[in-house]
Design a protein around this nucleic acid. Structure first.
Length: 404
RNA sequence: ACACAUGAAGUUU
């Protein structure tokens, strides 16, 4: 059982949930019965794949098999529910576990607080927070990081920094994630001076900046149009022995495109591939959008078609079976990539080709969203095809997409 | 052998 559980856990962590589910079934066929740990691991896999409903049916199954859920079981399901914004289910699970005499711990309160914060319901988050302190369950470094992030998202950077102080005074040391959260928050607000101040604070506290720290700063500088400073950090990473990852590269590529420096964007794109860092849908979107906005629409089309042929080749051979290798799935274009391309074709007056790609994306199972429809309607209006624009509008209503 | 927090891309000329 321990061997199987370890394997299932590892597969889930790598994103191979479907494969893990097959192992989970085949172990039972071989007479090895899953225990609470196995069920917990499998449920967590489903939750992390954003399908808590699968996890809930396993939960029912484990109850039918006479296994008692423990605090990890509830923590897993509560986190999964919170992550998809289903706070009603999360609260029901809390009530359910308490009825069984299991009291929620700080981890479970953290999941609820994070869930409410991400649902933009800070009042409820604060309620949960005071609820836990009243029960003498003390907020930990996770709790504070979650709250700091929520304040940053509300453009309350000053209060976020104050909370950093408060946690230190409560005897809780900020860690790498806490600092990165604040740095990222300031970078997003384009307050690079404040971000750098937090960097020096973390270094004073002997916490080494990592790839995420650098990527946040790089993106912040790129968005300020200070690509030279971003490149300075990029070379600093190399000296420190840190390799930029796909996120850092994508931020730089996007920054160079928006700076009008296409050659540097191309160079970085080639460099990351040479290093074995697979460009993902974000990278593809930046490439397509950058090429398009530089007036090189047809190259953007060719680039994307080239990528798709490439992924088809690698996608059919090594990843047969029930699970798909994320290597090729992640490098496929997504809805945003297509929308960027459709927009550029519309801008270029190639409305028929834009419609072709709009059909293609559906064939690949990608649902257009409100931005895609906005772009398509804008394209029709540009061509003075007003009735086509209206039928697109009717279409989106029929698909249940709210116009904005 | 099991659960919690951090960074990148598209519409509004």
């Amino acid at each position: 059982v321990i061997t199987y559980t370890t394997i299932i856990c590892g597969l889930c962590r790598e994103g191979h949930v479907i494969l893990a589910a097959h192992i989970f079934r085949s172990m039972q066929r071989q007479g090895v019965l899953p225990n609470v740990y196995t069920y917990n691991a499998m449920m967590d896999g489903h939750c992390k794949a954003a399908s808590p409903s699968e996890a809930f049916s396993l939960f029912q199954e484990m109850l039918r098999n006479g296994l008692w859920p423990n605090i990890v079981t509830f923590g897993t399901l509560i986190d999964g529910s919170c992550k998809v914004g289903d706070l009603v289910s999360a609260q029901m699970l809390v009530a359910c576990m308490m009825k069984q005499g299991i009291l929620p711990n700080a981890l479970i309160y953290n999941c609820l607080i994070d869930g409410y914060c991400k649902a933009c319901n800070v009042e409820e988050a604060v309620c949960v927070y005071s609820g836990m302190t009243k029960l003498n369950i003390w907020p930990n470094v996770f709790t504070y990081s979650i709250l700091i992030k929520a304040l940053c998202n509300k453009y309350r950077g000053v209060e976020a920094a104050a909370l950093l102080h408060k946690m230190q005074q409560a005897g809780i040391q900020a860690n790498l994630v806490t600092y990165n959260t604040l740095i990222g928050g300031y970078c997003k607000q384009q307050n690079m001076d404040a971000a750098l101040k937090i960097c020096s604070l973390m270094i004073e506290n002997r916490i080494e900046p990592d790839v995420i720290t650098y990527a946040s700063l790089i993106d912040g500088y790129c968005k300020q149009g200070m690509v030279n400073l971003a490149m300075g950090l990029y070379s600093e990473m190399a000296i420190k022995g840190l390799t930029p990852d796909v996120v850092a590269y994508t931020a730089l590529i996007d920054g160079h495109y928006k700076d009008g420096n296409l050659n540097e964007a191309f160079r970085l794109h080639k460099e990351m591939e040479d290093l074995g860092i697979t460009p993902n849908a974000f990278t593809l979107s930046s490439m397509v959008d950058g090429l398009s906005k530089a007036g090189r629409v047809n190259e953007a089309v060719k680039f994307l078609q080239g990528r798709m042929e490439l992924t088809d080749l690698t996608g059919t051979t090594p990843s047969q079976g029930p699970d798909a290798s994320p290597d090729w799935r992640y490098s496929l274009p997504n809805r945003i990539t297509y929308t960027a391309l459709i927009h550029s074709l519309c801008r270029d007056g190639q409305i028929v080709k834009a419609q072709k790609f709009s059909r293609d994306m559906r064939i690949f199972g990608l649902r257009p969203d409100v931005v895609t429809y906005n772009v398509l309607m804008w394209g029709q209006c540009q061509s003075r095809h007003l009735l086509n624009a209206m039928s697109l509008h009717a279409d989106m209503l029929k698909m249940g997409i709210e116009p904005d």
